[in-house]
Design a protein around this nucleic acid. Sequence first.
DNA 1: AATAACAGACCAACTAGTCGGTCTGTTGTC
DNA 2: GACAACAGACCGACTAGTTGGTCTGTTATT
Lengths: 211, 211
Amino acid sequence: MVEKQLKERIIETALKLFEKYGYHGVTVDRIVTECNTSKGGFYHNFKSKDELLYHIHEVFITYVLNKAQEAYGKYQTPTERLCAIIQSFVKVFDLYKPHITVFYQESIYLKPEYFEKINEKREQFKQVIFQVIREGIEAREFRSELPIEITGMSIMGMVNWTYKWYKPNGSMTIEEIAKIFIDLILHSLLTESAKQKEEIKAFFLRNFSHS
Amino acid sequence: MVEKQLKERIIETALKLFEKYGYHGVTVDRIVTECNTSKGGFYHNFKSKDELLYHIHEVFITYVLNKAQEAYGKYQTPTERLCAIIQSFVKVFDLYKPHITVFYQESIYLKPEYFEKINEKREQFKQVIFQVIREGIEAREFRSELPIEITGMSIMGMVNWTYKWYKPNGSMTIEEIAKIFIDLILHSLLTESAKQKEEIKAFFLRNFSHS
DNA sequence: AATAACAGACCAACTAGTCGGTCTGTTGTC
DNA sequence: GACAACAGACCGACTAGTTGGTCTGTTATT
């Protein structure tokens, strides 16, 4: 087993600190001390503190966007697609909780060029969600009276907000939380007739057979 | 008509700037220049930049907590109470959008003493929500399989997230958005039998009679 | 030997906060 | 009514400390 590379160590330390104290609450000096390196080590690996922040954003959004597109491709019906996307996204909280926190708290501090790049992917992710909702309405699985954007943002809000309260190693696993989210969302989106449809009912029961 | 007091002007300017650039993206110098005052004027009215940040938090959370308790007191049934609380909270976005943004983005930068005070009220607010959900389940209006905390945090996430995308003067009024939130939430919380109950059905129709 | 990886002293810029001073309006005194 | 005495609001040059970033030198690696 090779020693963990310095660059990785810097990122991990920075994430831990940024999550707790915020980007501006952490100095480069603090980062380098806490992971036993030096200014030289830091600036050898990153052009600037900004670039480190960008890197964190980039890693996270790229991963999440890929996962969403993957989940979309894996299923055919809107209901299944939506559930798969949510599930894959929520699972990310166990892997990338600090990334997510930084992503939602500190992105205003990204330099314009960096911000643009990140925002593009962020926008793509949103469009995947909107697309699924649109298809769900067209397929008469989701209620047609729902406005796509607001509904999409509601779902994203519900899920994203998790970063404010989720504690890994808490009393509930992230999978259990994901199930509850999906339960809530399906109850609010599905039409009465979709709830009756055999394949959707089966899919539903397979995932949430409470009692 | 008296001139607007300096303190008010400072707060307004700071809010506008904090919302856009973040607490650390705005210097005291910038605040005082943009509202045509001076360092002296600023520090005459505030002990520190931190105190200004605290003040913004305090005004907002106090208002919101009062509104929630008021809404709770005004109604008797859990469903009505929940809707009233959500409605009153969402309406705040037209009044206090910058406050809310600062509240959710910058509270980590509050000095410990300040943070404690704010957090206490924040906690109280959460408890009101949890309480209503608990009562709703006990009254068999809300589905008993829902865990109170997660459901509560889901609702708060959905609603709070609004600060990330809501544009006053957008194509939808805040009241319309509130209705959609409530529609989604009721669909996911209400039991089948509650949906049938005459008074709840009436209440429902009164608020969302889409076609 | 040449190059990449890292160390750490140092620098220049910036920023929150201070402090002596001014200006305006109010109160008390004759 | 005039004037002294005073208070509070506000000004802005200045400071002390902090922070991101640089630069020269040292160590490891191939």
